[in-house]
């Protein structure tokens, strides 16, 4: 429903040009949670602001439901904007308005009647679990509560897209998990397309369906979260994944491993349903080889299981070779060679 086509954005500063977004093409499907991850300065914030024309593209087109939004008149654009909810890292609530007043604001802009506004505000407050805070002012709330108000305000006009600008970056881990659950609920219950940007891989891991990795204004990798997580192509992507999932034990433990003989280690990656079969024990038993799980994890990603184990084998070398080649036909297995790092 949102399509970026060859989009670039260049900022002209004094004597320098900053290419914030460079030739990005992305399509975000209806009803999905799409995450854009990148380190700060990668251009993701600018990219997000192109969706509601808070920034205008230098080149390329952005279409929502087939409409080129850069071609809308100011009035049409304002109308279109009320159909795109936005939440922010720093919440950006109106300090001079109560919680209820903040949520009512977009409805007033849309010209709703007072009675309808009151009903809608009450409904939204109960959805985000803040019914008792209606008359409070934002500065009396905690960060998590502020973001809940932000979400309620963004949802007030029942938009079909919600864009999130680092919505959890100012929150502690527990509150972050809370807000992420709420975003998931928004997506599931209302079918709202969610486009979010973040620098935290666990945000992508816990709620996104698809992901795009940005670096220096370009999208360097994108795809299904499970695919990108289990088979990252780009070095930056690998770094992001390592931030949530360590795939090598610490150097101390590796040293000890080498001291005690240091058998060859193999990385075995299980994806999806195969994690339920006892592949390892079946194959090793068949070849009369023992295996030893040295390190690893099995986690859930997009409601699929993903195992990443470091394994060593004991037995005759030819038998081990046979085991490995049989395993290779069932799972992803490769010798770990970067142990000296």
């Amino acid at each position: 429903m949102i399509a970026f086509k060859n989009v670039s954005k260049t900022f002209r500063l004094e004597k320098r040009e900053v290419h914030a977004v460079q030739n990005v093409s992305l399509t975000i499907g209806e009803g999905e949670i799409f995450g854009i991850i990148g380190f700060s300065g990668a251009g993701k914030s600018t990219l997000l602001r192109l969706v509601n024309m808070l920034e205008r593209p230098t080149e390329g087109t952005i279409t929502i439901h087939g409409t080129d939004i850069n071609k809308l008149s100011p009035k049409e654009l304002r109308k279109r904007r009320s159909n795109i909810g936005m939440i922010f890292q720093n919440f950006n609530l109106f300090h001079s308005r109560t919680v209820a007043g903040n949520i009512a604001y977009p409805l007033k802009l849309a010209g709703w009647s007072k009675a309808k506004i009151n009903d809608r505000v009450a409904e939204l407050l109960s959805f985000v679990g803040l019914s008792d805070k209606a008359k409070d002012y934002p500065d009396q709330l905690s960060g998590g509560q502020k973001q809940r108000v932000g979400i309620a305000r963004a949802l007030a006009t029942s938009p079909d897209v919600l864009i999130c600008d680092e919505a959890t970056s100012a929150l502690d881990p527990e509150t972050t998990a809370d807000i992420l659950r709420l975003l998931k609920k928004v997506n599931k219950e209302f079918g709202i397309t969610v486009l979010l940007i973040t620098h935290e891989m666990h945000v992508i891991q816990s709620i996104c369906h698809r992901v795009a990795v940005m670096e220096n204004g370009r999208v360097i990798e994108s795809g299904d979260v499970f695919e990108v997580f289990t088979n990252p192509q780009h070095e930056t992507t690998q770094r992001f994944i390592q931030s949530v999932q360590q795939d090598l034990p610490s150097e101390n433990i590796m040293q000890e491993w080498r001291k005690r003989g240091g058998k060859k280690l193999y990385r075995v990656i299980f994806k999806g349903s195969i994690t339920n079969d006892s592949v390892l024990s079946q194959v090793t038993q068949k070849h009369d080889v023992h295996f030893n799980i040295v390190y690893g994890s099995v986690q859930e990603l997009q409601e699929k299981l993903f195992g990443n184990l470091l394994i060593s084998f004991e037995g005759d070398t030819p038998k081990i070779q046979a085991t490995i080649s049989e395993l290779a036909s069932l799972v992803d297995i490769r010798e770990v060679t970067d142990l000296e790092s």
Binding site: L54, L77, R81, S82, M86, F88, F94, Y105, P106, L109
Partner: peptide
């Protein structure tokens, strides 16, 4: 805050 208001149309 101004940006938020703009984003709301």
């Amino acid at each position: 805050v101004i940006e938020a208001a703009q984003a709301m149309g």
